[in-house]
Every structure is written in structure tokens, then in C-alpha cells.
Simulated assay, not measured.
Amino acid sequence: MPTPSSPAAVLFDRDGTLVVDVPYNGDPTLVRPMPGAIEAVAAVRAAGVPIGVVSNQSGIARGIVTREQVDAVNARVDAIFGGFDTWQICPHGPEDGCDCRKPAPGMVLRAAAALGVDPADVVVVGDIGADVGAAHAAGGRAILVPTPVTRQQEVWAAAAVAADLQEAVRIALAGDAG
């Protein structure tokens, strides 16, 4: 059962956060969880906090992968992690001007609505500044888990930074996300 300080929901970025980033992956057999990711998601689930995924998938707009391929990859991620309470995908490219592509708030807002929670009570966990930006644009909180692709400026700008997903979950569940 969530505690008063824990988030109403935790939303994870997919590529580079939950699973190893394979650029424009359309092949479910290439899905590999990030170290500690399965345990981190299980800890959130065990705490009774709803979980979701918010993922930019511009490969759809660019014609590199189809929506069906992305859905197949997401189904594999679901199978590995035991399912998520909501999936929010942005199929647009950076130039499309949509409201869903991170760092815009659309996917976070839609995930909060799907879960029936206030966006201010949501924590987004991701590996780049766009993940943090989307959380803040929606009025929520964020935890950055840097990877080799994370820019140093993004680390400096983040209010909450974790060394790995398990630490990020501990921070989120303690209500200490930034």
C-alpha cells in the first residue's frame, strides 16, 4: 500500500531506462532489460504504486519502424516486466510539434489520467533531460538515471539523480523525487 509520501504513480522511460537502447527497435527478440530494472519495477509494484511507460518513438514518423513493430516490442517489454498499468507512446518526430513528445507533457498527463491520479503526484524515471522536462511540464516530479548518452548539463540540471534504477525507485517511494 502506498504511503502518504510515496508517489501516486511511477512512469518509466522505455529505451535506456527499462531496456537497453536499440535505436528504432522493431524486433522483440532484441529486448534486454537494463541491469536491475526488473527488480526496480517489481519494488514499485510491491509497494502498491501503479506503473506505466512513457516513450518517444519517432521511428514511426520517420518510417523506420511501424506502429505494429513498436507494439510488438512493447508487448515483449510487458512480458519481461510483468505488465504495466499504462503505456503512452509518442509516434511523432521532433518537427511535428505535438503535445506528447517528451519534453512536452502530453504522455505524462495522459498516463496520469489513465491511472486516475493527479499529475503532480507522478514521478517519471528516465535517462535524459527530456524525461525530466516532461515530468516537470506536467507538474510532476522526476528522477534522472544517467547513462553514457546522458549529457552532463542534464545531470547538473536535474533535481534528483540516481546511480541506477533501484536507487531511483528508493528515492521515488520515499517521496524524495525532484
Rank of each mutant, 00 (worst) to 15 (best):
M1H: 14
M1G: 12
M1V: 10
S5K: 02
S6W: 01
P7R: 08
A8E: 14
F12I: 04
R14S: 02
D15L: 01
D15W: 00
V20L: 06
V20F: 01
V22W: 00
V22M: 02
N25H: 04
D27P: 03
P28V: 06
P28I: 08
L30Y: 03
V31G: 08
P33S: 04
M34V: 10
M34W: 00
P35Y: 04
G36E: 10
V41R: 11
R45S: 14
R45E: 14
P50Y: 13
P50C: 11
G52R: 13
S55Y: 00
S58N: 10
S58G: 12
G59F: 01
R62G: 11
G63Q: 12
I64Y: 15
V65L: 08
T66I: 09
V70G: 01
V70I: 13
V70Y: 00
D71I: 09
A75L: 11
V77S: 01
D78F: 05
D78V: 03
G82L: 06
G83N: 12
G83Q: 10
F84M: 08
F84I: 04
Q88H: 04
Q88Y: 01
G93Y: 02
G93H: 05
E95G: 15
E95I: 01
D96G: 05
G97W: 11
G97A: 10
C98Y: 05
K102M: 08
A104P: 02
P105I: 05
P105H: 06
G106N: 10
G106Y: 11
M107K: 08
M107D: 11
L109E: 12
L109M: 13
A111C: 07
A112Y: 08
A112M: 04
A113P: 00
A113G: 13
L115K: 13
V117A: 07
V117K: 13
A120W: 02
D121H: 13
D121F: 00
D121C: 02
V122W: 13
V124D: 12
V125N: 09
V125F: 11
I128P: 00
G129N: 09
G129V: 07
G129W: 12
D131M: 07
D131N: 05
G133W: 07
G133P: 14
A135E: 12
A137L: 13
A138V: 14
R141T: 02
A142M: 06
L144A: 11
P146S: 06
V149L: 08
Q152S: 07
Q152N: 02
V155A: 08
V155S: 09
V155N: 09
A157H: 09
A157L: 11
A158T: 05
A159E: 15
V161I: 07
A162C: 09
L165E: 05
Q166V: 15
A168M: 06
V169S: 05
V169G: 01
G178R: 09
